[in-house]
Nucleic acid binder design. Structure first.
Lengths: 225, 225
DNA sequence: GTCAACTAGTATACTAGTATAATAATTTTA
DNA sequence: TAAAATTATTATACTAGTATACTAGTTGAC
């Protein structure tokens, strides 16, 4: 189990949640293993309640399966659920990017371009963390422009399912392509061209590459069915 | 505060959640009022923890605002959020109903028709509760057919925002129209006609009638902005 | 041998008490 | 007098202990 320090001002509940989620999506906690409140609480040096609450939150999105009075199990990888998460994200982002074409102000456009430029900078400077942060920020901005942040939250939370299997994947998409996609999406929005924007965001999201077959061969016990 | 009995086999956490949600969406708990763990726990004859966990869950979807160390406030009606909920539901249901056109089996179609017939029966027999239950069941079935139940869960949870303001609305849609809409949607699915299905579900969902102006006049203090 | 009833073991679900932090009330100070 | 500092109040955030319920293993009836 990977343990971080609690951040300043962070509640123990949020701290527990952050640690658990991170351990799950990196498969540091292997799919299917049992987790016990007490053990985790001891490891994090907190009491059982914050851990319990964090587990309850994760179970809402089926990352954790709570067996009443018995313990919690890290959910097995359920490809139906992974596909549902992809469907969910695609459906929402397509709708959002179309809306963006009509709702984006000049300021919004220049903010987006700023993110793109920064991303290109960090791409050349091989700062993977910063690059990924900006990637998320680009998508976040699209929802923000349309005033649909609650939708963004849900997309993020469901995303954990494909984030987890993506971390096991062998073939990763070249970052260069992702930035180019963002540029294409940006230009479609700038041109107020919803058809093109939809096409581009679909192309972008279809790069979520999940090497299911290979992963199944190596870790068959990780899968639900 | 309206209090029900806990159902057999229901955890106290779920019980608290059910009671709180019901009181919020019926505006029995008025938008903006403070809620205190202790008071609610006493009223429900449970301890603070199950109530605390229920409040935490409701805060996830912004029905409750938690003020750290000070208490919880029933969220004011936020029309941006209500509109986001409508957008969210429409976006998802349009995508789902299109999928249904290709994915529904003969069995699925006959199950849907069964629901329609029951609904028509209860419409004539003026059983409002049963009617609404079947209304929900119809929409649930569409998600179920496509194997997208997690999406359904999210749509339901966000739906609380418009359910609440709808309960304050004066003009209610005639049930007869809703059943006819369901029939139209059903036929579009049966004909495997996604265009028509989209058109019909949009028409159906656009009936969500929110008399914002009149409600604002009577209860200006209920609104966020 | 099989199945049901019973028992032991264990981890949660819930209860209750304490520490902490946010706010309000009060006092101090300039 | 008004702003700053202090104190009091209060409700949560967290801790820790107990009751409950689930599982597995054993016993016993047939």
């Amino acid at each position: 189990m990977k343990i971080f320090e609690p951040e300043r001002g962070e509640s123990l509940r949020m701290y527990s949640l952050r640690v658990l989620r991170e351990n799950i999506i990196t498969t540091e906690f292997e799919p299917g293993v049992m987790l016990y409140e007490k053990e985790i609480a001891t490891a994090l040096n907190v009491s059982r309640s914050p851990v319990r609450e964090a587990l309850a939150e994760l179970s809402q999105f089926q990352l954790i399966e709570i067996l009443p009075q018995r313990g919690s199990r890290v959910a097995l990888i359920d490809m139906d659920l992974v596909n549902e998460a992809v469907f969910f994200r695609t459906t929402m982002e397509v709708a959002i990017v179309k809306l963006t074409c009509t709702m984006a102000s000049e300021k919004d456009l220049s903010d987006l371009e700023e993110i793109l430029k920064l991303q290109e900078f960090y791409l050349q400077n091989f700062s993977k963390d910063k690059f990924m942060e900006l990637d998320n920020q680009f998508h976040y901005s699209l929802f923000k422009i349309c005033n649909k942040l609650q939708c963004y939250n849900m997309v993020s939370k469901m995303g954990a399912h494909f984030d987890r299997i993506r971390n096991l994947s062998l073939h990763v998409v070249k970052d260069l392509k992702l930035v180019q996609d963002h540029r294409d999406i940006f230009h479609a929005i700038k041109d107020r061209d919803p058809k093109k924007a939809e096409e581009m965001i679909r192309k972008h999201l279809s790069r979520i590459q999940l090497d299911e077959k290979e992963i199944r061969k190596t870790y068959p016990q990780y899968f639900k069915n």
